[in-house]
Nucleic acid binder design. Sequence first.
DNA 1: ATGAAAGCGCTAACAC
DNA 2: GTGTTAGCGCTTTCAT
Lengths: 337, 337
Amino acid sequence: MRTTLRDVAELAQVSPKTVSNVVNGYIHVRKETRERVEQAIAELNYRPNLSARSLRQGRTGVIALAVPELDQPYFAELARHFVAAAAGHGLTVLVDQTEGARDRERLVIGGIRDQLIDGLVLSPLALTAADLDERTDATPMVLLGERIHHGPADHVVIDNVRAAREATEHLISLGRKRIGAIGSQKVAAGVTARLRLRGYQQALKSAGVSADKNLVASATRFHRADGAEAMELLLAQKPLPDAVFCFSDLLALGALRTLASHGIRVPDDIAVMGFDDIEDGRFSTPTLSTISPDKEQLAAQSIELLNAQLNGSAADRGPQEVYTNYELIARESTIGR
Amino acid sequence: MRTTLRDVAELAQVSPKTVSNVVNGYIHVRKETRERVEQAIAELNYRPNLSARSLRQGRTGVIALAVPELDQPYFAELARHFVAAAAGHGLTVLVDQTEGARDRERLVIGGIRDQLIDGLVLSPLALTAADLDERTDATPMVLLGERIHHGPADHVVIDNVRAAREATEHLISLGRKRIGAIGSQKVAAGVTARLRLRGYQQALKSAGVSADKNLVASATRFHRADGAEAMELLLAQKPLPDAVFCFSDLLALGALRTLASHGIRVPDDIAVMGFDDIEDGRFSTPTLSTISPDKEQLAAQSIELLNAQLNGSAADRGPQEVYTNYELIARESTIGR
DNA sequence: ATGAAAGCGCTAACAC
DNA sequence: GTGTTAGCGCTTTCAT
């Protein structure tokens, strides 16, 4: 048998309530009593039963972070900041992987872990507005990335259109004239891709740079392999592009790989721009220019929003939309060295 | 108020027990009754309270995975396999980050999350044998990586000495004569580093290749930046090494970066070998030769061991030590293309 | 096949 | 400053 609060109380010759007070750091306990209780706790190696506490308090102190794939560096880095930020609020993070599959994302918002978690942060990939409207579960939730619909859900977003425009303008400012893009997605789920594409197109248009549809390559996912493939396609175009904006760093790293295989020099022949600022890009050859979202801020903002909902201070506040900062970081893949 | 099992029972005109039976898939429920209950559940949007269930059953269905840093690709990839493997056993994974700090690792094995988790898988970096001996917490635990001591803890390991020897032999087989190493660690915690160093030394010795102590560079951590720095040091040696075995892929990727900065060709001038087979290495320029542990198997084995402990089938079995498979993968950084 | 009663370990509310 | 009582929502045991 595990030792319970009752056992401690008996050994310390006090009531269970007093033990509870000590465990929870309640102020008004006589020093003498406290010490006696603490000694009993140590002696019995007592640990509070968190299930019982949760049952009583109605909160578990656990929040879920649901991402498509934990081993995509962007999400791994995000998860790292989340776990740290949550710890700062006395919360523990439980991780779900959705694989970017709509049914798994629906399960997550539907409350599959309900009653185990106090709140949920989800980075959706395939979820639709209808899925959100159908949601009946009342667990506090914060969505990462693009606002999918205008229902009552808090969002933490980055201004993808503007960031993509700036990325493209950076390439234009280097004198590039045939600028390709990698990462467009036709599927309904590709909200982020569409916004980044829009930013890219806006930049070309306002700079008067011609937009060649053949220079826009799609990518099923945002992985290295997709970037490598897409780059192969762009290399089949004549004349060749002299710059490429990739909608994620992984895509860009894949593209760099293809360029290296073909002996094409970066940035001399083709400049490459990424998005996400994952650590890989800081050590690739060449190092990767990118848009760097403030991931720490993103995690902190999400936890803040969640906490507001948990504390009820979100009551008549309406759904929030919070923007995360980002900056453009120019490295070798665009400006050389 | 959240709807409870009792509410469902009332609506369906049955006892709480019957609802519980339905929820838990108990066989002997009349079809008619079951349907009535299921309808009530749907109508009230009922979700069982997992805290209450856990309290009653004494199990939570949650296991913790504690790794140094979630954003190190090796651990991220591991975490991915863990979450997937655990889901296959109906378990949810909660992630802790230790930062490789001894006090945090001690907290983890000391039961900081005790009573919230049924079991724990820890990848220790700084933990000592004494820390393990002092452990009083009885939560089932599996340790990843080197066996730290001979106390009663299950381990899942890979044969680091042998793997490192094979890695070095691979370089020797390519005719390399001045073979360096990056990643040695003097600190007590560097068990893994010491074993890989031993394998490296064994290989040199049995092949009759001279071992130059100046060609062994240490690394505080196993990150890209450490690898980049260490490579700088090796490049100060005369004559230059013609191959380097890095104790992790991240170290190797950092080393590649330094070599690229110096215009040194890989593998022509210097061949580079890594360890871990993280995805980055499959897309770096050049692609990275490495030792590839079977991470999926590793995750599966860990969950197996944990499950055995959870089910008590581990009772009089003694501490287990399970070896995970690995293979050597030769890519461009050693054999060119 | 279903129900009644008890209790898992804790803390909120209140009494003293 | 400390004790008493009650009950969170569920499952287990035993009865029918």
